[in-house]
Design a protein around this nucleic acid. Structure first.
Lengths: 310, 310
DNA sequence: ATAACCGTGCACATTCGGTGCATGATTGGT
DNA sequence: ACCAATCATGCACCGAATGTGCACGGTTAT
């Protein structure tokens, strides 16, 4: 309903270059350039200025983008209210999420929606949290499941988004099956302080979670190995290279020689998984139903996992 | 910026038929029909229902139209603020007004703007007040100068419009030059109670003004003749057929044998002339400048008229 | 200096969106 | 009860808007 050129401008405001905007919106760079030029012409405003080899928003452009937040939210809210009031169904629904979230939460959601609403066209995109927000702005997706990072750049109360906590996904310890503690029901982080740890590379999304968990209990772990994928980390643990942290939502699959233990004591690390939507759209019946399904599924997986794995 | 299809829907909500919507928006009926169908498709909402030989808004449709008022206002407000903040100029500007208002106020305004801002494309449409509001909704014009009628259908605080009083245009009496009172500076309505009056046909825009003026002083005038145009009425008076009321803004031109007298006493009829714009757009620099020019011009004409005419 | 990157103009293709006319459905007048 | 008027809509057609792909000029980093 809002002119797609304004959406493009908003995406540009986020990424700063025409090329990145094109990649994110799905247009070609030429199209983005033409859209922005047309937008300026039709509004009679100069929104962009040449800046080196790129372009930059003018003060007017920044003003317009900032003010458009409430406009978008207003429209989303109106649409959601109309959908609810009129008991209507929408035809397209885009979902985005990050790795395990996508696999464990979005896939079942998509499946459920597909059976509940056969004529709804559901699309799932796997993307990291930051990109999920971009995709929301670009209107490529309508709902994102992401891991909330306190240290992340996005602010809690961004005027463009609304977020709902789905669950706090606790981190478990995975250790080799032949480890002395493998028979235990649970462990504390203190007990594992001297173990060689396997973590993700520094600067990665989950590395900050790892360090935060240990600073909470006041010990400094020894990082022996680094892995990028959960699967790799699990394999390292299975090979006896060390121990690691694994979110409970992340499945062990058919991992051999690896045992999952719950963490007790004061250091109870967890990652917060939230659903994010464009502000105003939270009232939409489809979003509401999706949030319900997500939360139910999350709880089910969360409680069912221990029996599954042992 | 708002999808033109939504604008079309809003116009349809006002006039109720596809044909009238087409006439007002400037599209063909087929185009309106296609737009509304496309709108429903892209929103996944059923907005229209067949109703006899026409179509009618569904509850969802009415809800959407009602809610879109604030959306449009929000956009207008944002655009106006951006224009002002960035010191930008717009390229097109549509004006609408009713008969004398158009001739006496809009023409000078258009002329002034044309010289002040050479590259601004100004368009003036003459239309009656009700149609002016429709044209504002349809975004064919951006500013309308109309006569405020308390008895009219439009409400003072319509969420779609904002109105500014330009001036209270007093009604003068026009009498034949050979009338016994013609030499007077001013008269009261009492003194003319027994005269044969020339007015507009009942139900016309100004007829209610006429009756309101006389009910205020408690006398019932005798209506001898009816005219549609001011010019005709003036000619009738010049021919000695009776006396009439003429707004001060309406010029006597080269009328022969007609004298304009001011009205004194408790019955001082006047018509209120207001400028109307889409809600939110009042802050636009172009609108602000136009309102200033209009008010200045109105005052100038209002004070200069008596010397001009006598 | 050279290479990499970024935005934009141009030729071209496609699609979207418009008009004009014909048609079907419904209502009001006679 | 019929006929004319009114209204919305589908269809053929056409033009304009809007996309892509490629080449080019300008700017920065190595």
């Amino acid at each position: 309903m809002i002119d797609p050129r304004l959406i493009t401008l908003r995406v540009f405001a986020r990424c700063g270059t025409v090329g990145a905007t094109a990649e994110l919106t799905g247009y070609s760079p030429s199209a983005v350039s033409a859209q922005l030029r047309e937008l300026q012409r039709m509004l009679g405003m100069q929104l962009l200025t040449k800046d080196g080899r790129g372009v930059r928003l003018t003060a007017t452009g920044r003003f317009l983008v900032a003010g458009s937040d409430t406009l978008i939210a207003e429209w989303e809210s109106l649409r959601a209210a109309a959908m609810e009031a009129g008991d209507q169904v929408q035809s397209r629904f885009g979902l985005g999420g990050f790795s395990t979230a996508a696999a464990q939460l979005l896939a079942p959601l998509a499946a459920t929606l597909r059976s509940t609403r056969p004529l709804l066209e559901v699309q799932v995109l796997e993307a990291n949290p930051a990109r999920c927000f971009d995709l929301l702005v670009a209107e490529r997706i309508d709902l994102a499941v992401i891991v909330a990072m306190q240290s992340d750049a996005y602010v809690e109360d961004d005027p463009r988004f609304e977020q709902t906590v789905l669950l706090d996904d606790p981190l478990d310890v995975i250790i080799p099956a032949d480890h002395p503690l493998a028979a235990r029901e649970s462990v504390t982080l203190d007990e594992l302080a001297s173990e060689p740890w396997i973590t993700e590379s520094a600067g990665s999304t989950y590395h900050s979670l790892f360090t935060a968990a240990f600073t909470a209990v006041g010990v400094t772990p020894r990082i022996a190995h680094e892995a990028v994928e959960w699967e790799t980390q699990i394999a390292f643990v299975g090979a006896g290279l060390g121990v690691g942290l694994l979110p409970r939502l992340a499945p062990l699959h058919h991992a051999e020689n690896v045992v999952r233990l719950r963490i007790t004591g004061k250091g109870k690390p967890a990652r917060r998984i939230v659903a994010a939507v464009r502000r105003g759209s939270i009232g939409s019946p489809l979003i509401q139903e999706s949030l319900g399904i997500l939360q139910a599924n999350a709880q089910r997986i969360l409680t069912a996992r221990p029996e599954d794995e042992r």
